[in-house]
Design a protein around this nucleic acid. Structure first.
Length: 514
RNA sequence: GCUCCCAUAGUCUAAUCGGUUAAUGAUAAUGGAUUCUCAUCUCAUAGAUCCGGGUUCAAAUCCCGGUGGGAGUACCA
């Protein structure tokens, strides 16, 4: 944990989580959650959960481009609570706040601001205001009409005489601000969209800056940790606090998290993909939601620590999921039993066998021998037997990290060990027909030889593994896998950790953890 | 364009209010030991203060300039 000034003050620490309920929390949102939770725990403070469920889009935007529009998804409230529970976040469960319950408060303040001449109702269109006034640092004509007229305009906003986009309330931060981003910011605007919690109870909604300017004070927030993309909001909030003469919470900003281009981190994007059937649901690994991480077998502690390691740095971070995986491996390795799985199976016909039955008893977990062994039996007939091995081991000269392996490429004459069984020598490779021929060489074990996992050709179970990219890969696993239970985290040797997802009679479905 | 923020190894983080040869940090890389998994565990190696000025006895740290990157400039959050 980085050291900060948080907690130096005598006052008790009160912080808040402000998720927008448009979908399940994802790994990016989790940073905000974990950071807040951790500091509150450190200073024995209080954490308030406040759903930032203002309306988001206008009705018009929802109708025109629903795939881009931001709106409150009813299911998201529970999805978020589920994510917080999984992450073991200590928020005040007896006092969950919903912004949508507080619209009257914002309206009252807005009216007060107007009455005191600190805000005004502007009827300029967004484009007009930007081009004619904001970019030129000039005041729009609305700004200087009388307060009485502004009150009348305000009433027209409330009662429906103005339509969406016809009028907004602007805070008089000043058109001469050096930073064009903060010139007379909009604080209230009209949306006729229906809200899942309060329906059409109100049509005038606050914007984030304003609602938090009020609520951070009303809720007694002492410290705020949020992304640097919200720096402008900090300015507006400070402006409001100064105006009201309120004491100021301390704001800490952290920098942007960049994820690799393969995954799109967006609740709205995930929602669209789920709705159109491209994704399975909120636990689809491509959402990178907390639900999906849980499903995959990521431990919440792994995520917490990984995110906490980044600290409160303001610089942009190129996040690597490998950090998360490395931590998780340390956490689950000791309890993950080992099994054999061959991806892209290819048949290996072995000849020259003297026995009719071979029994292999590999350890369930070499790091914990007390767990015992499992049994894999290979039956030979007429000196011959078949096993499946992975084609990857023949074609690809890489380990699972993507680094080159030391062993030479498989070719006729190549000797290798069927793990915990015996050593064979390749006679023939026929990739087109998906077949290999080999002959028995010896039972004796040589440490330096290459070991390959295998499954008996006449006794295996089909397995489908769902990878983080959403692609399902097929293979065969030893029959013992069929006896496992759903949710169990295991390791497919030399392949990766997986979590059992579903067990059918003839197929086992797994999530690929890492 | 304007405003603001950031800058230490490949990627990230440390480095008490400026103070000895910049971490025994994480991850990734390389090599070794262990292992019937090139997995895990373990040991070791290699790897950095963006550039240029200034202040100072002393600068990764403070100041100025440059360069690079990012964010904001929404009637989203």
């Amino acid at each position: 944990m980085p050291n900060t000034k948080i907690g130096d003050k005598k006052l008790p620490v009160v912080m808040r989580l402000a998720p927008y309920p448009s979908g399940a929390l994802h790994i990016g949102n989790a940073r905000m959650i974990v950071l807040n939770d951790e500091y509150v725990k450190k200073y024995k403070g209080k954490l308030i959960l406040c759903f930032d469920d203002t309306i988001g889009a206008t009705k018009q935007m929802l109708e025109e481009s629903p795939e881009k529009a931001k709106f409150v998804l009813p299911d998201a409230y529970d999805l978020i609570l589920e994510g917080l529970k999984w992450l073991n976040v200590d928020y005040d469960r007896n006092n969950i706040i919903y912004k949508s319950d507080r619209v009257d408060i914002y309206k009252d303040y807005a009216e007060k601001f107007i009455q005191e001449g600190n805000a005004y109702v502007c009827t300029c269109s967004a484009d007009e205001f930007r081009n004619k006034y904001k970019n030129r640092a000039k005041e729009c004509p609305c700004r200087n009409i009388s307060i009485e007229d502004h009150i009348k305009r305000w009433e027209k906003m409330l009662n429906g005489n103005y339509g969406e986009g016809d009028a907004v309330v602007r805070l008089k931060t000043g058109m001469d601000q050096k930073d064009p981003a903060v010139r007379d910011q909009v604080i209230m605007r009209i949306s006729d969209a229906e809200h899942p919690r309060i329906g059409n109870k109100t049509r005038v909604w606050p914007l984030l800056d304003f609602s938090w300017g009020i609520d951070d004070h009303e809720l007694g927030i002492t410290h705020i940790i949020r992304g640097a993309d919200l720096q402008k909001e900090g300015f507006i909030e400070n402006f409001i606090w100064d105006l009201m003469g309120w004491s100021k919470p301390e704001i800490f900003l952290y920098g942007r998290l960049n994820f690799s281009s393969e995954f799109k981190l967006s609740k709205t994007h995930a929602r669209v993909c789920i709705q159109n059937g491209e994704y399975d649901g909120w636990d689809d690994p491509r959402t990178w939601s907390l639900q999906s991480l849980k499903a995959r077998g990521i431990q919440p502690e792994s995520l917490r620590e990984t995110l906490l390691d980044l600290g409160l740095s303001k610089s942009g971070i190129n996040f690597s999921e490998k950090w998360l995986y490395a931590k998780n491996t340390k956490l689950i390795d000791e309890s993950a039993n080992r099994y054999w799985f061959v991806e892209n199976p290819i048949l290996l016909e072995i000849s020259g066998l003297a026995e009719s039955k071979y029994v292999s008893n590999p350890l369930l977990n070499p790091n914990n021998e007390d767990l015992g062994t499992r049994e894999i039996i290979l039956i030979a007939d007429n000196g011959k037997a078949g096993v499946y091995i992975s084609k990857n081991d023949i074609k690809v000269q890489m380990n699972r990290k993507g680094n080159k392996i030391r062993y030479p490429k498989m070719a006729p004459g190549y000797e290798f060990r069927l793990k915990d069984l015996f050593t064979v020598k390749i006679d023939k490779i026929n990739l087109e027909q998906n077949k290999l021929k080999a002959s028995f060489l010896t039972n004796e074990f040589d440490v330096s030889i290459r070991k390959i996992q295998w499954v008996p050709a006449n006794n295996y179970i089909k397995v489908k593994v769902l990878k983080p990219d959403g692609i399902q890969t097929n293979g065969f696993a030893e029959k013992n896998v069929k006896e496992l239970s759903i949710g169990e985290k295991i390791q497919f040797e030399r392949y990766g950790y997986v979590k059992i997802r579903r067990l059918d009679d003839d197929i086992v479905y797994c999530y690929f953890t890492h």
